[in-house]
């Protein structure tokens, strides 16, 4: 009855997700895992009603066109997130992030440029980054690799500023939650 069925992509994502740990040097696998985690995080986020897409609409995850995660993330495009479908959008330089619901920033991404940061202020966009950030950065969730495992920290001030709601289940799994 409850056949555990799904597309090949889905299966690949879960395989990555359920892997017990990371093996150093296997960059491709690590990116797959990161992409899966980014996707999973989106499952536990609620957008304010004025910013949420319409039912059946697209939830837009913006990335840096140069991100190494673009390939694994693209394989997740079309996957359901709540009542929406995941859409990936590579944010061009200087493009406004208004269309984005979430934004993944790689370490050293050129999107770290100041103008974007300014533009993000006050927008309901969940910014996920994969390196520790400064106090005034708009990154709400930092992915980090420690002891061969992926972990994440949550910056609640940023989350609140973006008027987003994170599920307590996600918060429970966070390594650190900064108020």
């Amino acid at each position: 009855m409850h056949r555990f069925a799904g597309s090949g992509l889905c299966r690949a994502a879960l395989l990555a997700l359920l892997c017990c740990g990371l093996v150093p040097g296997q960059a491709v696998e690590r990116d797959d895992l990161k992409a899966a985690i980014v996707y999973n995080i989106l499952l536990f986020v609620d957008w304010p009603s004025d910013a949420a897409p319409a039912a059946g609409g697209s939830l837009v995850l913006c990335t840096d066109p140069a991100s190494t995660l673009n390939t694994p993330l693209k394989s997740l495009a079309g996957r359901p997130v709540h009542a929406f479908r995941l859409e990936l959008h590579e944010l061009a330089a200087g493009e406004s992030p208004r269309r984005c619901h979430a934004l993944f920033l790689d370490a050293g991404s050129r999107l770290q440029a100041l103008p974007l940061r300014r533009q993000l202020k006050g927008l309901p966009v969940l910014v996920i980054g994969d390196e520790p950030s400064g106090a005034d950065e708009p990154v709400a969730i930092h992915l980090d690799e420690a002891n061969g495992r992926m972990a994440f920290d949550v910056d609640m001030a940023t989350v609140k500023q973006a008027r987003l709601q994170l599920s307590s289940r996600l918060l429970r799994l966070a390594r650190r939650v900064n108020e």
Binding site: L17, C19, R169, L170, R172, L173
Partner: peptide, 14 residues
């Protein structure tokens, strides 16, 4: 319900 997230994030402890 409470193990969905730990399962998703592979968090054995949680």
């Amino acid at each position: 319900d409470n193990t969905a997230a730990p399962l998703l994030f592979n968090d054995l402890g949680a």
